[in-house]
Every structure is written in structure tokens, then in C-alpha cells.
Design a protein around this nucleic acid. Sequence first.
DNA 1: CCTACCGATCGGTAGG
DNA 2: CCTACCGATCGGTAGG
Lengths: 191, 191
Amino acid sequence: MVTTRNTRADVVAAAGRLFAEKGYHGTSMRDLGRELGLLGSSLYAHVDSKQDLLVDVVEEGALLFQESAQRAMTVDGPGVERLRALIAGHIDVVLDYHDVVRTFLNEARMLDGEHRARVIAARDAYEQVFREAVTEAVAEGSLRSDVDPKTSSIFILSILNAVERWYRPGGVLGRDDLVNAIDRFVETGLC
Amino acid sequence: MVTTRNTRADVVAAAGRLFAEKGYHGTSMRDLGRELGLLGSSLYAHVDSKQDLLVDVVEEGALLFQESAQRAMTVDGPGVERLRALIAGHIDVVLDYHDVVRTFLNEARMLDGEHRARVIAARDAYEQVFREAVTEAVAEGSLRSDVDPKTSSIFILSILNAVERWYRPGGVLGRDDLVNAIDRFVETGLC
DNA sequence: CCTACCGATCGGTAGG
DNA sequence: CCTACCGATCGGTAGG
């Protein structure tokens, strides 16, 4: 096996892993170098600063969710179907980009003011897509008329984002089972 | 106003605030000293190590949730009432001990193996109380018979724990409104 | 990507 | 709780 040179993408991916596991401030550039088999100082051939790596990882996360929302909104049919597509798409992102998502959810607050503001704006826009799907589903009669789209969207996203904290692939609960369980819980609750 | 000496409890409380805001690794002992109006080195008159402070804050959080669960389980009547008491109690803890809860939820993973294991055990025991309430509520017919107590409890706790991330007191949504909205969402969903 | 290094800051200690 | 300090580690740079 040849040991090949690392690309910037390799460095960002490794940063995502370590930031997810130990946090941004709990990860040193020397830790990151070790993960890639080089010295901490060598990383500066790829990036200008440690903060740059956090920016890259977090913006990748924001982009993944944005793209997922765009795909879900192309689903035609009733609003409740678009809501289900948003849920399934979110779960896909969480499970397929576990480390990026963890860093996006837990470490974005470590960004400097300007970048943090952009991430918050992206997150708000993403939440807005959920609200619109809920609003449509209420209007078409798929959901109860007294449902508040804002609060409901927060509750749905709370369940979706927490998946990163407890779900482990390969268990008895498969991905489709998970999505179905969330759909069911969201649509009919426990009664 | 007299400037009085800090107690260990003051130090732990300030640590909770800073750990919640900037993370454990993002908070230095000098930051913490500044918060209390003294030098970083002076903190060692109160604690043996920085890790001790994290242990104190996180174990306080674990205790608060444990006590809340114990109170909720004294509620007699149907299981669904105990579930509602668990939900209301959890929200009280989250809103009354915001910083402790944030640190408990986000920084416990920074603990060393032994302490982290204890916190995980406490969290599992707490979740188990939710499962039992759901199981009883299913048995008595308050909740659907095909409800899975384990997954349902995780979803409920996902909503409850996320409150720390978005809810701000003093807004249009009061504490009782919040609890009622969660009860409604959990029991009947959006349909 | 390494060598060699920088000033700053880290958690923590001895002694008062 | 402060003074004075410790060795270790931090993010980062110059030059190759």
C-alpha cells in the first residue's frame, strides 16, 4: 500500500472526525496531524488557520442540509409528502455524514461572529422549509388545523437532530424503520 | 456593596455558566477566575483540578433530573399522568438550571472514562423511568398498543433536551404553553 | 511536508 | 486569595 499525499479535503474530513469526537477546542493541530500521519505544523500547507477547518466542516454541513431540503421540495403531491421527504432526507444526511453533522450541530457556536451568523441564517432558512411543508399540510387538511407550524417544526427537528446522539447503524432498528418510526410519531403521536 | 469571598458553590456555578457558553475546553481557569474577580491560580484554593469542576456541574445536572423523576413517579393515577409529570418536571429543570443542563448535555463527554460512565448510567436510569411510564400508559390503554416505549422515550427526550437550544423565557410562549405544546405533540402528533 | 522555532497561554504548585 | 513561577502545549511562521 502506498502512502499518498493528503489533500485539503482529507484534512477537512479528518478535522470533522476529531471535532465531532473531542470538540473544536479539544482538538489540537498536532492531534489532527497525528490523525493524518504528519506534523501539526505541516497542516498549514493546506489551511491558513484552525478556524478555517471549522468553517469548512460546518459549511459543508449547512450545504448538505440545504441540498437535502431542495431535493425534498421537488416532491410533488400533498404537503405532508414533502414533510416526509424532508424527514427522510434529514436522516440520510445525519447517517451518511455523521461527523460533519455532529460538528455542524455542536461546534458551530465556536465560529467567530461573522461565520456563526451565516450558519444561523442557513439553519433558519432550513427550518423555514419545514414550516412551509407543515403549513401546506395543514392547509390541505393532512394535519390538524390548530397545529402551529413553527413549534411543530422545532419539535420535528429536535427529534431529527438528536438521532446523531443515540442511533447506531447495524442494530435492530434499520434506517427505514427509523424514518417510519419518526413519521408515525410526528403524524399520530402516541395516542 | 461589599465584595464577599467566593465559596466553592460560587466557583462551580460560574464554571457551569462558562462551560455552557464556551465549552469545557474553551474555558480556561483564568477565564473562570476573571468571571469571579480573582486570578486563575486562586481557584485552586477551592478545587483540585479543572476536571473536578466539570464533574461537579455535570453531577449536579444528573441529580436534578434524577430528583425530578422521583417526584414525577410519586404522582398516582394513570401512567399517562406520570408521563406528563415527567415532561413538566424535565422542562422545569431545563429552564431553572439552564447552564447546568447545557453543560450536562454537551460537555459530559469531556469527562474521564470513570465519571463519564457514571453519567451515562444515570442518564440511562432516567430514560428507563420514561420507558416505564410509557409502558404503563400503553398497558392501561391511554396510549396506542403498538407504541414502542424505548423509541418513544427517546423521541420525547429529544424534544425535551432540545428546548435548551431554542427556548427563551419571556417570549410569547410561556412555560405552561411550552409544556402543553409538548404534551399535545407527544400524545396526538400533528394529525 | 519537515526542521526548527516563536510568543502566548495552558493547568497547576509552593509559599505566604 | 495573591505572588511568583513551572513545564507543557498551544496556534502559527520562516525557510527549505
